[in-house]
């Protein structure tokens, strides 16, 4: 009760600054792809799988390209450069920045989590958070076995984005499935336990330079607000409880979404450099 009053005093914008910026980023990226087909102004062409910005900057999803390599195809095109640029970018800003600032599915799973919380649904099938890495292995192994990029047949991430830009078709079924999974069956299951795209970027982000820092952890009053909003709550405890020496949230599962900074009343968190 107390903290709620306090928050109201801080104001909506302050409490949701990072969330708002994130949503803006996600929507803006989508709009960049859409103003071409809508208005004939071509700033960005293609989709998240591979795009060309201003007829000059190629960007390619390294995970899909890697599947293509595993399926036995060596590209001779711009895709290599595009994937390189993307890898370097996420290696610097944090791999899972893709999840919280770009991926459209994040909006869906966040919504599922929000509704779950609002309706006080507590039952949740426990899933191991490492399943997603197995799914990465699986999607890479299936490629040579079948000789095709199999994961892209079912990947809700690319399916939703491509659908929004090129026409959805029945892709919404996959998106609704993800929503229902997170909402009714297991909390934060898709992004937190299963999605291989997030897991792949998680691995990319191992070396990332930008990190959330619980620099002020001594002021933590155990309100648990950050645990409630964090998409990967298991990474908070070691840092907040002083189990780790550094105050950096070093686990690369962190999506750098900044939601903890938003909700924390005593201002424990800030975003900063790794070093």
């Amino acid at each position: 009760m107390d903290s709620e009053k306090q928050k109201n005093k801080r104001g909506f914008l302050k409490e949701n600054k990072w969330l708002i910026m994130r949503r803006l980023s996600q929507v803006l990226i989508l709009l960049l792809f859409l103003i071409g087909p809508w208005f004939g102004v071509w700033i960005v062409k293609g989709s998240l799988a591979s795009s060309l910005t201003l007829d000059f900057l190629p960007l390619t999803d390294p995970f899909i390209l890697l599947q293509s390599v595993f399926a036995g195809f060596i590209t001779d095109g711009k895709a290599v450069m595009g994937a390189g640029i993307v890898l370097v970018f996420y290696a610097i800003v944090g791999g899972r920045v893709y999840c919280s600032w770009v991926c459209p599915v994040n909006i869906v799973t966040d919504a599922a989590h929000w509704l779950r919380h609002k309706l006080n649904i507590t039952g949740s099938v426990p899933l191991d958070k490492n399943i997603r890495f197995w799914v990465v292995v699986l999607s890479l192994m299936l490629a040579p076995i079948t000789g095709m990029i199999v994961w892209e047949l079912v990947n809700p991430v690319t399916m939703l984005f491509r659908g929004l830009v090129f026409g959805l078709g029945f892709a919404w079924v996959f998106v609704v499935a993800v929503f229902l999974l997170d909402f009714a069956i297991s909390q934060r299951a898709w992004c937190g336990k299963l999605c291989p795209v997030g897991a792949f970027y998680n691995l990319v982000g191992k070396v990332s330079l930008i990190k959330v820092n619980a620099f002020n952890r001594d002021d933590c009053d155990d309100c648990m607000d950050c645990y409630q909003v964090c998409p990967e709550p298991q990474i908070l405890k070691p840092v907040l409880k002083g189990e780790s020496k550094s105050t950096l949230i070093n686990d690369s599962a962190c999506t750098n979404c900044g939601r903890c900074i938003d909700v924390c009343e005593p201002k424990v968190f800030k975003i900063g450099w790794r070093f």
């Binding site: 799988a49 591979s50 795009s51 060309l52 390619t60 293509s68 399926a71 000789g147 095709m148 491509r162």
Partner: peptide, 15 residues
Amino acid sequence: NDFLSACIRCGLCVR
């Protein structure tokens, strides 16, 4: 067969 291992489904050709 090769196409399904090579096409990353980006839609640039469509555009």
